[in-house]
Design a protein around this nucleic acid. Structure first.
Lengths: 112, 112
DNA sequence: TTTATATACATAAGAAAATTATGTATATAA
DNA sequence: TTATATACATAATTTTCTTATGTATATAAA
């Protein structure tokens, strides 16, 4: 898939937020959803996505179950209770980082 | 200094933008400016800053000159012509990334 | 006076988090 | 039968940080 140096660091937050909104998703579905919502601007590579999912699971934020559809295995992820709290925390972080970055880069929408 | 996983990828953009606004700055001054403007939220580590400055110079976006003040050497950086163009390009990238991230994370200010 | 803090640079070792390249496997359209 | 899409995974490598050091001067505090 493709690249964006600014993506670094926000992948976990994106995954957690999508799972908050969608209850359960599988990896490939996440790549397609991100591509769709960002209109092609953010493309997740598999080499980034799958290790990130495994890490979030290892950290206790996600749990999994598999399902076979059309002879292909899908591995679904959903938030654990701990993961639910983590979403809030990561979103707060992301919001304040975006604010600070916009201030530094003078990209703030005019605050009259 | 300190840490922010979301900072990854935006350091070069921050440096270039500060030099567009301030004409010439030295490394330590950049760390203090970022700390001040972000109200302590973004703290640049020296281990990240200096290599980033050296890379921007090697890439032809920055040029340097030194000056001695109070018996201490300051190494000033300023944008080259190529660097001036790079600022615009990096800011566009940053803007569209922030937009997409806000959309994905549902952090968009209400667009009535 | 000597100790801590601030100013000012730099680099090396290590870790984190990507990209790129592979690999396996099935379904479907050309 | 070939390419593309779906669906997972991991290894090698690269990028970009953090953390730890190192050098050196100025100044305020103890």
């Amino acid at each position: 898939m493709s690249t964006n140096p600014l993506l670094k660091g926000s992948l976990q937050t994106i995954i957690l937020k999508l799972l908050e909104d969608n209850d359960q998703m599988y990896g490939y579905e996440i790549t397609q959803k991100v591509k769709e919502v960002s209109e092609g601007g953010i493309m997740l590579t598999e080499g980034a996505l799958y290790p990130a999912l495994h890490k979030l699971e290892a950290d206790g934020f996600l749990e999994t179950f598999t399902q076979v559809v059309d002879n292909r295995v899908r591995k679904y992820y959903r938030l654990t209770e701990q993961g639910g709290k983590e979403v809030t925390s990561k979103l707060d972080e992301a919001q304040s980082f975006i604010d600070q970055l916009q201030t530094l880069l003078n990209l703030k929408p005019a605050t009259k």
